[in-house]
Amino acid sequence: MKFSDFVVAPAIRADIAADDKPSVIQEMVASLAASGAVRQEDAAGIVAAIMKREELGSTGIGRGVAVPHTKHPSVSKLIGTVGISHHGVDFDSLDGEKVHLMFLLISPPDRPADHLRALENISRQLRDDTFCRFLKQAHSTSEIQQLLDESDTHQFGS
């Protein structure tokens, strides 16, 4: 699975303003709603579901990366967005570090395999230090989009 298969381009955020976990998740879901990828009336329920998942254990998986996610019946296919925080977000990460890169995923309840493939793609690409560093330094959505496209066409290592 490629980034272009699930990342909703108009919902990408190059400079996340919020600096605590609930507000960041709200900001990213609002961005998906504004792009039309999820309905406005579903946004609050999606945010609540993602926060409930975070209570089971932070999705801040280390290296300044978090993958907040949930299953939600309002989506018919896996969708997601990318947010960059330049000042860093306290995400209760497993390694205690602040989070700068967030990949938020919403998947239909009956599609666990798609969710796994998205996590596989994200983690595989993020093992590449160059990709990780460039993403953290990106200052515009078009820059992020370009990095994701380059990653999709394997211009960063494997």
Binding site: I61, G62, R63, V65, L94, P112, A113, L116, R117, L119, E120, N121, I122, S123, R124, L126, R127
Partner: peptide
């Protein structure tokens, strides 16, 4: 490594 484990994408 969590990052490594997630790269498996291993299904049921």
């Amino acid at each position: 490594s969590i990052l490594d484990l997630l790269t498996l994408g291993a299904q049921n």
